[in-house]
Computed example of a mutant assay.
Amino acid sequence: MSTNYSLLFYLKKSKNYVSGPKPIYMRITVDGIPKEVSTGRECDPSKWSSKANRMKGTTEAVKTLNTYLYALASKVSTIHTTMTAATEEITAESIKLRYQGKDIKRTQFLEVFREHNMQMEALLGNGFKPNTLKGYKTSLLHIGQYLTFFNWFASEFLPDLLFRLTALLISTDDFTLLFYTEITARPLL
């Protein structure tokens, strides 16, 4: 199991590139296998130092970008150290996934609630009464119904409402825009 890795920041040129800034990519290499991740930043090629893997200059924008790249390198280093300490298999892909937060198993709220209710059912008679479990099951039912309604509302009704309000705002005066801005700034509940 290899524990060494290399990290490189570089400018990636797209196929139809003519001129202007290029996106900055981070390449993580383990055992000769590279994986690339976009940093979400761009740099003009004339201002990029390939030797330093950083932007050249002393302006505030250059310092900010270089600090951001150092922070990314530090985050990858921390991930590598954590994986080494946990004796996990270290590959370029596993470091990339951990960096992107995609390696974490995400559980949904209702699944966790159902598991809780099953555990509570097993504990009946050991300090827990049937009415307690009944309350938990009722809560699960109500939350499930609420989430189902909210998902329907958000996917079916809300986009149409926002479209109509936007069309209305485009066709009305500044007073309506101020009123709409005031209404949307207030909390719903």
Score class of each variant (00 low, 15 high):
E36G: 04
E36Y: 01
S38G: 14
S38F: 06
T39V: 00
G40K: 05
G40Y: 02
E42A: 14
E42K: 14
E42V: 15
C43P: 04
D44V: 13
D44A: 15
D44N: 15
P45V: 10
S46E: 15
K47W: 06
W48F: 01
K51D: 13
K51R: 11
A52C: 12
N53G: 10
N53I: 01
N53Q: 13
K56H: 07
K56A: 04
T59W: 06
E60K: 09
E60G: 00
V62G: 09
K63F: 03
T64L: 11
N66P: 03
N66K: 05
T67S: 14
Y68A: 08
A71Y: 09
A71H: 08
A71T: 09
L72I: 14
A73P: 00
S74M: 11
S74K: 13
V76C: 05
T78G: 11
T78D: 13
H80A: 13
T82M: 10
T82L: 01
T82S: 06
T84Q: 12
T84H: 14
A86R: 15
T87V: 12
T87L: 09
T87E: 15
E88T: 03
E88V: 07
E89P: 00
E89C: 14
I90Y: 00
I90N: 02
T91L: 04
T91R: 04
T91A: 05
A92Q: 04
A92E: 07
S94T: 10
S94R: 13
S94E: 00
I95E: 00
K96P: 06
K96F: 07
K96Y: 06
K96R: 12
R98K: 13
R98V: 05
R98Q: 07
Y99R: 10
Q100G: 06
Q100L: 10
K102N: 11
K102W: 10
K102V: 02
I104C: 06
I104D: 03
K105I: 11
R106K: 14
T107C: 08
T107H: 14
F109D: 07
F109M: 04
F109A: 15
E111Q: 12
E111K: 01
V112Y: 04
F113V: 00
F113T: 01
E115D: 14
H116N: 07
Q119G: 06
M120P: 00
E121Q: 10
E121C: 04
E121K: 08
E121P: 00
L123M: 10
L124G: 07
G125A: 08
G125T: 05
F128K: 13
F128I: 12
K129C: 00
K129E: 11
K129M: 02
K129Y: 05
K129S: 08
K129A: 09
K129V: 06
P130K: 03
P130S: 04
P130V: 01
N131L: 08
T132A: 11
T132D: 07
T132K: 09
L133R: 02
L133E: 01
K134R: 15
K134F: 02
K134L: 08
Y136S: 03
Y136I: 00
K137C: 04
T138E: 12
T138I: 02
L140V: 03
L141R: 13
